[in-house]
Design a protein around this nucleic acid. Structure first.
Lengths: 237, 237
DNA sequence: TGATATTAAATTGTTGACAATCTTGTGCGC
DNA sequence: GCGCACAAGATTGTCAACAATTTAATATCA
């Protein structure tokens, strides 16, 4: 947070806790909010121009989705999933997202595919403009957009939660060189497979896609405190 | 609520919002709390001996899990899933619970199976004692206990949510005569299949089980207000 | 009687003050 | 300098009063 903290932008209507949640989630998705970041109530109050109550409610909802971690008297911290949790998130995504895509294969209309194609173009545009934050968010939203075609609200909500957690996991454990994010043509081929009536191929593409993301992770031991010792011991010289 | 409202039972420690959530969820699972029941803050405050803040937080969490429905200035009402939502819940259960059982098949230890057998005995005992409320709760908890063996926390949490919603759905649409609840031997055979290393059979038993529950539902139109008219018109004579 | 407007009660929403707790900084003794 | 007790500040937790809204009850009139 090196920029000026709390420039009170004009807010026509008062934001609700859902708005605050969405803003936080979007920031997580754009990787502008790093795992482990401390979120003080006061700060968010001034940033969003809302009451402490609203921020508190937002924290509670976000903690339920494992996006922030709440600890009594300690406040809210952006969640830092463990490697084990990361593994479980990917496993859950393989299960739920496959099921939703299977459903989507039989339900998607031409208009739906058009929407997906439009999204893919937006992705490419963001990448071409080197608007990386936006591109990262869009690649995440692609999966949600695709899953929405499955027509199952509970699973969709669950998958959204998992996508946000994936963003945290990549931020934590993503190797710098590795293709930790979605490659553009992966999405393209997935849509094509669906559109051409090859759902099995689509599912295989998806699982490969998820597996390659997971393979691009590097679970270095980051044990909070002990980590700092190692880091500073190495940087001392 | 015909019984005396607020006999303040001695509470050693102050309950937290999670406690209140659990109590409400348990009541839903035991079908002691009917869908559509209005939950006033004041009432729950006196019942649980907690502050309004705690009840409010509990409501927020429960609303996230679709167990209660919150409406601005209207308060909390026990959720009444629509037939479409019910369908989606069963679909989600088939997907997630199958996956968890598949995982459980490769992970469950003899001690785990012993735990399941013990639970089955408890179920039978409750049924023998004609403690129906407890039996209903136990049959629901069986699915959660089984799913826990899958070793995937996010999916487990999601399934728990779905199980509670299933309880609401059965309460709403369960035919009186139909076997809307889990039959005891279904559970027994499921455990046996798993224990004997036949996971495919276990999954088939589960899906059949869920399908039979769903088939035992009767989605009569219950349009809130209009329903009352019909009801009283019929009972007037 | 039945429908509608008005008032009273009940319920929820919001706010701010205060208490409890944690964190940081300071000073003291060694 | 190091370790530790202590105090000051910052942050979160709790609560109760007040405001806003909904719901129920009552009165009024056709």
């Amino acid at each position: 947070m090196s920029r000026e903290a709390a420039k009170p932008v004009f807010q026509p209507a008062v934001l609700t806790e859902e708005d605050v949640c969405r803003r936080v989630r979007d920031s997580v998705l754009e990787q502008r909010l790093a795992p482990g970041t401390r979120l003080t109530e006061d700060k968010l109050c001034t940033v969003f121009g809302v009451n402490r109550t609203v921020v508190r409610r937002a924290f509670l909802l976000l903690s339920r989705d494992k996006i922030v971690h709440l600890e009594k008297n300690k406040g809210a911290v952006v969640a830092t999933p463990t490697p084990e949790e990361a593994d479980e998130v990917f496993e859950a995504r393989r299960v739920v997202e496959s099921a939703l895509i299977t459903q989507a294969a039989t339900r998607a209309t031409p208009a739906d595919f058009e929407g997906l194609r439009t999204h893919l173009k937006t992705e490419k545009a963001a990448l071409a403009e080197a608007d990386i934050a936006r591109w990262i968010r869009l690649t995440g939203e692609f999966h949600i957009l695709l899953a929405r075609l499955g027509g199952n609200a509970p699973m969709l909500a669950f998958l959204e939660q998992l996508v946000f957690q994936t963003s945290l996991i990549i931020a934590l454990y993503g190797k710098a060189g590795a293709p930790s994010n979605c490659r553009g043509d992966d999405h393209e081929r997935l849509v094509t497979a669906l559109e051409q009536g090859r759902p099995e191929d689509a599912i295989r593409l998806l699982t490969d896609h998820l597996n390659s993301i997971e393979a691009g992770l590097d679970f270095v031991p980051r044990d909070d405190t002990q980590d700092l010792h190692q880091i500073f011991a190495a940087s001392a010289g």
